[in-house]
């Protein structure tokens, strides 16, 4: 059963110029993205800055209104809704099922509220009686491995890692159907990052969380996600189960990304660098396959014809004309 099914999602921004502010072009930040998240599954959305991964997550949360496409969401009451077209009013009662974990644990907690109140806020807003709220806050603090006394203290008393735990407790307060986590560990120190990664793994096991994990760090993603979708210039270029994607990538961009990550092992030093050039501009993406100017395998066809995301093996999708003929290197 799928908690979320996104199909052909687009978010375009018009570019205006001239005296009459006529539309002269469009930034195709997200340009036809489709994926699903099954119940209890963590899907990672990865890619470099400007690839559109955060725009996708913001469309799902309806912090942005999509240009077109559908976002079918199952709030767990037997009927799915399309978040893409729902009016704001109708979204309200759904928000409790759709929660977010933020990147920056310093700006995402109100410094004037006690931790207990921060965690209880979503409960209060949704009409949970005070007595129940108290018990639930204690339960949540325990869940994120924080002492009960944290309840009566303010966020400034806590380190970045502890604040991130508080943010996670708040996101989980209402037992959401789907958690969207946008770079939840990238602002943390290594030793603290490891604690939060382990916590997320625990919570996935214990609560069967469904999660969209937006991240740029491919190492972190390998630890926490069940499947990975790789984005490049507004489109998904590859989707696969995590281990398969890392071991045997099927899109040249995935191969490039994996090869670029410096492994914490001096024996693996000096791997061949394949990517040249910069990430393409989503305002004027190259014709054909957007990756072709940087792709070591590009042929004439890649320069004119845009490849579609197709199933190249059971459960594995790639948008590359040559996916079946080229042999790509992964990281074992």
């Amino acid at each position: 059963m799928n908690v979320l099914e996104v199909s052909d999602l687009k978010k375009h921004y018009p570019i205006h110029a001239g005296l009459l502010r006529r539309e002269v072009g469009r930034v195709r930040a997200v340009d036809g993205v489709s994926f699903h998240i099954a119940q209890g599954e963590t899907l990672a959305l990865v890619g470099e800055s400007g690839c559109g991964k955060t725009t996708v997550s913001r469309c799902i949360l309806r912090a942005l209104a999509p240009t077109s496409g559908s976002i079918r969401f199952d709030p767990g009451q037997g009927e799915t809704v399309d978040l893409a077209t729902l009016p704001k009013r109708a979204l309200r009662p759904l928000r409790r099922h759709l929660q977010m974990i933020f990147q920056d644990p310093y700006s995402s907690l109100n410094p004037r509220m006690m931790v207990g109140d921060i965690i209880a806020e979503p409960l209060r807003v949704n009409g949970v009686p005070a007595a129940e709220r108290h018990a639930r806050v204690l339960e949540l603090l325990d869940l994120v491995q924080m002492p009960a006394v944290a309840r009566t203290r303010f966020p400034h008393a806590f380190s970045g890692g502890q604040r991130q735990r508080i943010g996670i407790a708040r996101a989980l307060a209402l037992n959401p159907r789907l958690v969207v986590a946008d770079e939840p560990v990238s602002a943390l120190d290594v030793s603290v990052q490891a604690q939060i990664i382990n916590l997320l793994l625990d919570l996935q096991d214990r609560l069967k969380l469904s999660m969209l994990f937006v991240a740029h760090d491919l190492s972190v993603v390998r630890h926490v996600s069940d499947r990975v979708a790789v984005m490049y210039v507004g489109r998904i270029v590859e989707v696969a189960p995590t281990d398969a994607l890392y071991r045997t990538p099927r899109h040249p961009y995935t191969e490039t990304l994996l090869a670029a990550v410096p492994a914490p092992d001096p024996m693996r030093r000096g791997r061949q660098m394949k990517a040249s050039g910069d990430v393409a501009d989503p305002a004027k993406p190259p014709p054909g396959c957007a990756f072709h100017p940087r792709c070591p395998y590009a042929q004439d066809r890649c320069r004119v014809e845009r490849p579609e995301l197709t199933e190249v093996a059971p459960g594995r999708w790639a948008s590359c004309h040559r996916a079946q003929e080229i042999e790509l290197a992964g990281v074992a």
Binding site: S159, G160, G161, Q162, D189, V190, S191, V192, Q193, A194, Q195, I197, N198, L201, Q204, D217, L218, S219, V220, R222, H223, V224, D226, T242, D243, Y246, L258, V261, A263, P264, D265, V331, A332
Partner: peptide, 24 residues
């Protein structure tokens, strides 16, 4: 401890990390 806590591109699925207690 720091080396064990670093997430690795070579990790196995759902691999937990060794952690250092507390924070700096």
């Amino acid at each position: 401890a720091l080396l064990r806590a670093v997430p690795s591109i070579l990790a196995t699925p759902r691999q937990r990390l060794a952690t250092i207690g507390g924070a700096v």
